[in-house]
Amino acid sequence: MSMRTFPDRVRHAVLFEAFGLAIFVPVAAALFNQPVGHMGVVGVVSATIATLWNFVYNLGFDHAMLRLVGHTRKSLKARVVHVLLFEGGLLAILIPPIAWYLGITVWQALMMDMAIVGFYVVYTFAYNLAYDRVFPVPQAAQPA
């Protein structure tokens, strides 16, 4: 079984963000009646914060699991808790600065963020499906 190489993973991540922002910024500007530049700032800053939060959160979650249960294997229940805490933390981090920057209420920023999450769920699925077709994982060499 083969895995993707490090350069392929970098290409995957960079293209994911580039295409995502290219779609998100103009659509969100029109949908939320905000200037394109403002939504560009929201998109880039949010993606950067989400990436940093992902790193810090996963490191902390794994350390907590190791301390509490002695391992980092995640059951289905642990995965549900993991994703809910991750998204809740990201909301808590992003909502106040988005509301401030765009001059909207915290409630409006929350509703905006929920729409953005919905977009990225669909986008992530479609992007990964397309990426796997355009850049398939090379097959491992079979022993003779």
Rank of each mutant, 00 (worst) to 15 (best):
V83T: 15
Y131S: 01
P96L: 07
D113S: 09
V121R: 05
M114F: 12
G103S: 04
L91E: 07
A115F: 14
Y127S: 00
M112P: 08
F125I: 15
L85R: 01
A92I: 11
L129V: 15
Y120C: 07
T72K: 14
D132R: 14
L90K: 00
A126I: 15
I104P: 00
K77W: 13
F86Q: 04
Y123C: 08
Y131L: 01
L68D: 14
F86G: 00
A64Q: 11
W100F: 14
A115P: 13
M114N: 12
R73N: 15
W100V: 05
T72W: 15
I95V: 07
Y127I: 02
A99K: 01
W107S: 08
A92G: 11
A126S: 11
L94I: 06
M111V: 09
R79M: 11
P97L: 09
A130P: 08
A130S: 03
L91G: 04
L110S: 07
G70P: 03
G89C: 04
L90T: 01
P96Y: 08
T124V: 14
N128W: 06
I93N: 05
L76K: 13
I98G: 01
V122Q: 05
G118P: 06
W107P: 08
L110D: 02
A99S: 05
V83C: 14
L68F: 12
H71L: 10
M112G: 07
A78D: 12
I116M: 11
K77N: 10
M65C: 04
M65A: 00
K74G: 01
L85H: 02
I93Q: 03
F86R: 07
I95C: 00
L110H: 04
K74A: 00
